Amino acid sequence: MKNKIIITATICLLSFASFAQNTNDFFLKADSFFKEYVVNGKVDYSKINADQAQLDEVLSLAEGITVSKNDANVYQAFWINAYNLSVIKGIMDNYPLNSPLDKKGFFDKTPHALGGKNITLNDIENKLLREAFKDARFHFVLVCGAIGCPPLISKAYLPKTLNNQMTKQTKVAINGSFLKVNVKKLRVEASQIMEWYKGDFTMNGKNEIDFINLYRTEKIPADYKLSYFPYNWKTNAL
Rank of each mutant, 00 (worst) to 15 (best):
K184G: 04
V183L: 11
K206A: 09
Q165R: 09
K47D: 03
G205T: 01
A30T: 12
Q21T: 14
E63C: 04
V58C: 02
A173D: 07
L128G: 00
L85N: 04
V143L: 05
Y37S: 12
I6R: 09
L85V: 04
A190T: 09
N163D: 14
L162T: 05
A146W: 00
E63T: 10
H112S: 08
T10Y: 03
K206R: 09
E208C: 00
P100D: 00
Q192T: 06
D51L: 07
G90T: 06
K35R: 14
L129E: 02
K117F: 13
L13E: 13
A30R: 03
D102I: 04
D31V: 11
P150I: 05
N22Q: 15
K180Y: 08
Y37W: 15
K35C: 12
N232A: 09
N175Q: 10
I5R: 15
S154T: 06
N118L: 10
L114P: 06
W233F: 08
K42Y: 07
V87S: 04
V38E: 02
V39E: 06
D51Q: 09
F16Q: 13
P221E: 12
A9D: 13
Q54P: 02
V172K: 12
V74A: 07
F211L: 01
F106V: 10
T161G: 00
T120V: 03
V183S: 11
E218H: 15
